[in-house]
Nucleic acid binder design. Structure first.
Length: 929
RNA sequence: GGGCAAUUAGCUCAGUGGUAGAGCAUCUCGUUGACGUCGAGAGGGUCGCAGGUUCAAGUCCUGCAUUGCCCACCA
C-alpha cells in the first residue's frame, strides 16, 4: 500500500516529472513506437518574442497547444509540436534601446554605441530572454520537441528568409521603389500599416485659402504640410468648383518655390465634408500619394526623416520642428487674413506601436512586396493566393482549404485583404535579417558581363550601380550589403515550413542528422492556434508565404482565441502595471491548476478574464483528484488490477457508473475534436466530482466488493488518461503510483467499452435510487430534522420494489440517516408523515418521534416550510398550464413530432403527480400547526 | 461611415429550436479516516428592448439600444 501524502504538492513533483518526460525522448515523435503508417499531427508553436518573459497570454497558448498535442499523441498519432522563439526585430530593439536610455548611461544608444556594439547588446539580451522563455515553456508542461527547436534569426531560418526574398525578387514581386511610407521619427524606421495603432485625439481643423485670389478654401489639420501642396482636389459633381477644374493657380505661401496648384477632379472627394475641397500633399499623405499617381502630379517633400522641415519648405521654415512650423504658418495665414475658420475636431492619429510616436508619412526608397502583381506562370497575384486558401482552397483544391475557428475571422481576414496595400518590408532598425541585396559601383566591376541589372520599377537608384541578390553574399569583391533589415513578419511568415527543413539546404533539426523528410511528413501542419490580434500580422503572412514559396497552405486548421484580460476586463499592460507572472501563479497553485483555469471557461475567439480565485478553485479540484486517487490506491486490493470485471456480479450502481464512464469517454473526445476544450474539461470535472467521488466512491464504502475494487481502479485509470492532456503533471504523478511502468503521456486514449449493450437500460434505474436518496436528504434539510436523528422511511415502490431492495444499504446509509426502512410494492397512505414522490414511487417519512410541530421550531418554522411548498406548487401549476396550452392546440398536435407530444404528456403526468404529493404534504403540515 | 461580436442568476460566463445551466458569492446544516484545498442542501432569471418566422424562440430573421473590437476615413 503506497504512502501518499494528504495534499498534492505540485512544486515538489512538476520539475521532476518534466525531466522524466524530456529524458524519455517521446517529445520527439521519431522516438514514439508507432507503425510507419501512423497518422501525423503537427503544430508549430507561435514563437514568443525574445523581448523578456512570458505573460499569461503565452500560458493560455501553451495550455491549448499542449492539451491538443497530448491528446493527439494519446490517439496514437505521430504528434509533433515545434518550439521556437522570435527575434521580433523592432520589438526587441525598441525594448533594449529604451532600457539603455532608462539606465541613464545613454541618450541615443544608436549614435553612441554604433551598429556592431548595439547589436551585440541586443543579441545578449535576446539570448537571455530566450533562455528564460524556454524555461517558462517547460514550467507550463508543454510537450514540444526540443530537438527541433527553432529561432527566427538562426542560421537555418535566415537561409529560408534569403531564399524567399531572392525568389520573390526574381518573380518581380519584391521591388525597390520610391513611395510614401509610414515613418517613425523616434524609431528612425519605417513601419507597416499593421504596425500602427490609432488613437483618437482632438485636433484643430483650420480652414483657409492659399491666397486672396485663390477661389477655393480648403481645410486641414496639418497646415505645415501645405507647403508641399501640389493640387486641390474636388468632386467632379461639385457645382461650386466645377468651373475651376483643370486650372492651375500659382500661389506663394512661403515655400522655397511658389506653388503651382492644379484643380483636379476626383470621385473620392466628399462634397459634404469641410469645404468639399482638399489640398493635395503627395509627399505626406497616403491618400494624396494615390492622387499624385493617378493625376500625375509632382511631389515635394517638406518634412524630413528627423521630423524637421526641409529646405523645400522654404527658408523661413527650414529646420523648424513640425509644431513650430505649424504655428508659424498659421500665424502667417492670420496676418494675411487668409485664415477663415479654426475649430476643434476629433481625429484618429496613427501611432507607432513600438516607439509610441505619431507616425509621419514620408516619401522614400524602400523595399516592397507587391501584392497585386501577377506571379509568373500563375496568372494570380499574392492577394489571390491569400484569398483562395480560405475560400476554394489553394489552387482550387478543397483539401488545401484552411478551416478557421471561429469562422467569423475568415470574413475579417478577407475584408482586410481587400484593403491591403503593398507591404513595405524594409526597416532601418539594425536588429533583424539584413536585406540580402548587395550593391557595387560599376566602376569597380572587374567583369561587366557578370552584372545583374535592376528592374525598371526601381527608381532613384543610381544608374552606375550594380545589384546582387542571393541567399549567400557575392563572392567577388567590392560589394556592400543593403543597410536595411527586414520586417520581422517576413521571417515569421515562413515559420511553418522554415522549421521543417525548408529550403532543403538547411538542416531541419539542430544537433541531429539532416532530416529533409520533415517537410514531407509534417507540412501542411495540422493545426495552429493564435491570438485574434495576430490574424493580419501573422496568419495572413503565413498564408502568403507558404502558398507562394512551397505551394501548400501552412496549416489545415486554425483556432483563434481572444486575449486574456485582468479581472476588471482591462488588457494586461506594462503601463497599467497589472501584469501577472505565470511563474508566480505556478509557484502558488501549480501548473495544472493554471492550465485548467485558462482552458475551462474559454470559448473560441472571445476574450477572457483572469481571476486568481479561479486558479485557486482549480488547485482545490486538482487536490480532490489527488485524494480520489489516494483513497482508491490506498484501499485497493492488489489483485484488482489484473482481473476482468464480471458483468454478472455487478450491482446497479456499478453498471450505472460504467455506463456513465462510457458516455464521458465519448463526450470528452468529441469535444476536444471540435475544439470545445472548455466543455471537455467541464464534463470531466462534473463526472469526477459529482458522479465518481460523491456517489460511486461513497457507495463503495458501503457496499464493497471485489468487483467494485476493480471498477474503482479501472475508472481511476481511465480518468487519469482523459485528464492527462489538461493536467499532465498530477495525472502522470498518480499514474506512476498505480504501478504502471509506461509513461501516461504515451498511453493510448481510452476506448469506449460499449457496455451500453451489456447493461440494459432498465439497470440505469439506479437513477431512481439516486433520486430517492436525494429526496430524503432534501426533506431532512427542509424539515430541519436533526442530523443525528434516525428516521423511519416507508417506500411504496410498485414494480421497482425488488430493485430497490437490492439497493437498501445505499438508501439507508448514504447520508439519509434512515434507521428503519420498509420497502413494499404498495400500501396504505400514511397520515402524519412527510410525503415524497420520485417518479412513480411514494415515500413516507412518518413524523412520529422524528419531528414535532410546532414544538421543534415553532409555528414560524412550519410556516416557512409551507410557504416553500406553496411556491413549488405554483411553479408546477404554471408549467402544467404552459404544457396544456400546447396539448390543447390543434396546430401543435398536427405539426410537432410525435416524440415531443409524447414527452409533453409524460411531463404533465409527472408534474401533476408531484403537485398532488406537494399538496398532500402541505395538508399534513397544516394539520399539525 | 462599413463590418463583427457581446448583452442570460449578485459576479464571471456556458447554452447546438422542445422543462433556463455551471463556477464563484450568499444563506442553512454537517464533518474523527480519501479530501476543511471537504460534504449535504437552499434561495436567486419576464435570457437588453420591440417586432417577425415557427406548433414551439435565450437559440432563427428584422429593427433599435448599450458596450467592446476590427477596418476605412479623418482633407
Amino acid at each position: 500500500m503506497p504512502e501518499i501524502p494528504k495534499t498534492y504538492n505540485p512544486r515538489e513533483v512538476e520539475d521532476k516529472i518534466y525531466k522524466i518526460w524530456e529524458e524519455s525522448g517521446y517529445f520527439n515523435p521519431d522516438n514514439l513506437d508507432l507503425p510507419p503508417k501512423a497518422e501525423k499531427f503537427s503544430v508549430a508553436m507561435p514563437p514568443p518574442n525574445v523581448t523578456g518573459i512570458l505573460h499569461l497570454g503565452h500560458a493560455l497558448e501553451n495550455s491549448l497547444m499542449d492539451t491538443m498535442i497530448r491528446y493527439q499523441r494519446m490517439q496514437g498519432k505521430k504528434a509533433l509540436l515545434i518550439p521556437g522563439t522570435d527575434h521580433a526585430a523592432v520589438a526587441t530593439q525598441a525594448k533594449v534601446e529604451s532600457d539603455l536610455v532608462k539606465s541613464g548611461k545613454y541618450k541615443n544608444p544608436r549614435q553612441e554605441l554604433g551598429r556592431e556594439k548595439l547589436l551585440e547588446i541586443i543579441r545578449d539580451f535576446a539570448e537571455q530572454s530566450k533562455a528564460t522563455i524556454l524555461g517558462q515553456i517547460r514550467k507550463m508542461g508543454t510537450s514540444c520537441d526540443w530537438d527541433r527547436m527553432a529561432y527566427t534569426f538562426d542560421k537555418d531560418r535566415t537561409r529560408a528568409v534569403n531564399e524567399v526574398f531572392a525568389r520573390m525578387y526574381r518573380d518581380g514581386l519584391i521591388y525597390r521603389g520610391y513611395r510614401v511610407v509610414n515613418w517613425s521619427v523616434k524609431g528612425q524606421s519605417t513601419c507597416s500599416d499593421e504596425e500602427l495603432v490609432y488613437v483618437e485625439r482632438t485636433a484643430k481643423l483650420y480652414t483657409f485659402k492659399y491666397s486672396k485670389e485663390f477661389p477655393i478654401s480648403i481645410a486641414t489639420t496639418r497646415p505645415e504640410t501645405k507647403l508641399g501642396d501640389m493640387a486641390v482636389a474636388v468632386n467632379p459633381k461639385d457645382k461650386r468648383y466645377k468651373k475651376y477644374i483643370g486650372q492651375t493657380f500659382i500661389v506663394d505661401i512661403g515655400a522655397a518655390k511658389p506653388l503651382k496648384i492644379k484643380i483636379i477632379a476626383d470621385e473620392s472627394m466628399d462634397i459634404k465634408f469641410g469645404t468639399g475641397a482638399v489640398g493635395v500633399t503627395p509627399a505626406h499623405s497616403m491618400t494624396d500619394y494615390d492622387l499624385y499617381v493617378k493625376h500625375k502630379l509632382e511631389l515635394v517633400q517638406v518634412i524630413s526623416k528627423n521630423g524637421k522641415m526641409t529646405a523645400e519648405a522654404g527658408k523661413e521654415y527650414q529646420n523648424l520642428s513640425i509644431e513650430e512650423a505649424r504655428k508659424k504658418f498659421v500665424k502667417w495665414l492670420e496676418e494675411n487674413k487668409l485664415l477663415i475658420k479654426e475649430e476643434d475636431i476629433t481625429q484618429n492619429v496613427g501611432i507607432s506601436d513600438r516607439f509610441g510616436d505619431v507616425v509621419e508619412v514620408l516619401p522614400m526608397t524602400q523595399w516592397f512586396v507587391g501584392v497585386n502583381k501577377k506571379i509568373p506562370g500563375k496568372e494570380k497575384c499574392l492577394k489571390d493566393l491569400m484569398r483562395e486558401a480560405v475560400t476554394v482552397g489553394h489552387n482550387g483544391d478543397a483539401k488545401q482549404k484552411i478551416k478557421i475557428t471561429p469562422d467569423r475571422f475568415g470574413k475579417i481576414y478577407l475584408n482586410w485583404i481587400d484593403n491591403l496595400r503593398d507591404w513595405c518590408i524594409s526597416r532601418q532598425i539594425w536588429w533583424g535579417h539584413r536585406i540580402p541585396v548587395w550593391y557595387r559601383d560599376k566602376s569597380q566591376i572587374p567583369n561587366p558581363k557578370s552584372q545583374i541589372n535592376l528592374k525598371s520599377e526601381i527608381q532613384n537608384s543610381k544608374a552606375d550601380q550594380e545589384i546582387y541578390i542571393g541567399t549567400e553574399p557575392p563572392k567577388s569583391e567590392g560589394w556592400t550589403q543593403d543597410i536595411d533589415t527586414l520586417d520581422t513578419w517576413f521571417s515569421s511568415g515562413l515559420w511553418t515550413f522554415s522549421t521543417l527543413g525548408w529550403p532543403a539546404s538547411a538542416k531541419a533539426t539542430t544537433g541531429k542528422p539532416e532530416k529533409l523528410n520533415d517537410l514531407k511528413e509534417f507540412h501542411p501542419t495540422s493545426w495552429m492556434q493564435m491570438g485574434s490580434e495576430l490574424v493580419f500580422f501573422w496568419m495572413a503572412r503565413m498564408i502568403l508565404m507558404s502558398t507562394y514559396a512551397i505551394d501548400q497552405i501552412p496549416f489545415k486548421e486554425v483556432y483563434i482565441h481572444g486575449i486574456l484580460r485582468d479581472k476588471a476586463g482591462r488588457k494586461f499592460s506594462k503601463s497599467l502595471g497589472n501584469g501577472i507572472d505565470p511563474l508566480e501563479i505556478i509557484k502558488k497553485y501549480g501548473a495544472d491548476a493554471l492550465r485548467l483555469s485558462l482552458i475551462i471557461g474559454a470559448t473560441p475567439g472571445n476574450d477572457m478574464r483572469f481571476f486568481e480565485e479561479r486558479v485557486e478553485g482549480y488547485r482545490n479540484f486538482v487536490n480532490k483528484l489527488w485524494n480520489i486517487s489516494r483513497y482508491i490506491l490506498q484501499t485497493k486490493n492488489d489483485r484488482a488490477n489484473t482481473e476482468e470485471i464480471a458483468i454478472d456480479k455487478l450491482t446497479p450502481i456499478d453498471k450505472w457508473i460504467l455506463v456513465e464512464t462510457d458516455v464521458l469517454i465519448k463526450e470528452v473526445g468529441e469535444n476536444i475534436n471540435s475544439y470545445n476544450f472548455s466543455q471537455a474539461g467541464e464534463k470531466l470535472q462534473d463526472f469526477t466530482r459529482n458522479y465518481f467521488a460523491d456517489w460511486y466512491i461513497e457507495a463503495s464504502k458501503l457496499e464493497n466488493s471485489p468487483e467494485k475494487q476493480k471498477i474503482l481502479i479501472n475508472i481511476l485509470k481511465i480518468l487519469l488518461k482523459l485528464w492527462h492532456p489538461f493536467i499532465p503533471f498530477v495525472t502522470e504523478t498518480v499514474w506512476k503510483k498505480t504501478g504502471e511502468r509506461r509513461l501516461l503521456m504515451i498511453e493510448k486514449w481510452p476506448k469506449e467499452m460499449n457496455i451500453v449493450k451489456l447493461v440494459k437500460s432498465s439497470d440505469i434505474f439506479y437513477l431512481v435510487i439516486k433520486d430517492i436518496i436525494s429526496a430524503i436528504r432534501n426533506a431532512r434539510a427542509e424539515n430541519k430534522i436533526e442530523p443525528s436523528k434516525k428516521i423511519k422511511a416507508v417506500i411504496y415502490a410498485g414494480r421497482y420494489a425488488n430493485f430497490i431492495k437490492e439497493n437498501e444499504t445505499l438508501i439507508r446509509k448514504m447520508r439519509t440517516g434512515i434507521g428503519e426502512l420498509e420497502i413494499k410494492k404498495a400500501g396504505k397512505k400514511i397520515d402524519n408523515a412527510i410525503y415524497l414522490a420520485v417518479g412513480g414511487i411514494d415515500i413516507y417519512l412518518p413524523l412520529e418521534g422524528m419531528i414535532d410541530f410546532p414544538a421543534s421550531g415553532g409555528s414560524a418554522e412550519g410556516g416557512e416550510i409551507i410557504r416553500a411548498l406553496v411556491k413549488k406548487i405554483d411553479k408546477g401549476e404554471k408549467q402544467i398550464d404552459a404544457i396544456n396550452k400546447n396539448l390543447a392546440d390543434k396546430n401543435f398536435l398536427a405539426k410537432a413530432p410525435a416524440k415531443v407530444v409524447e414527452e409533453f404528456k409524460k411531463r404533465i403526468k409527472a408534474e401533476k403527480e408531484n403537485i398532488a404529493k406537494l399538496n398532500e404534504r402541505k395538508r399534513l403540515l397544516s394539520n399539525q400547526l
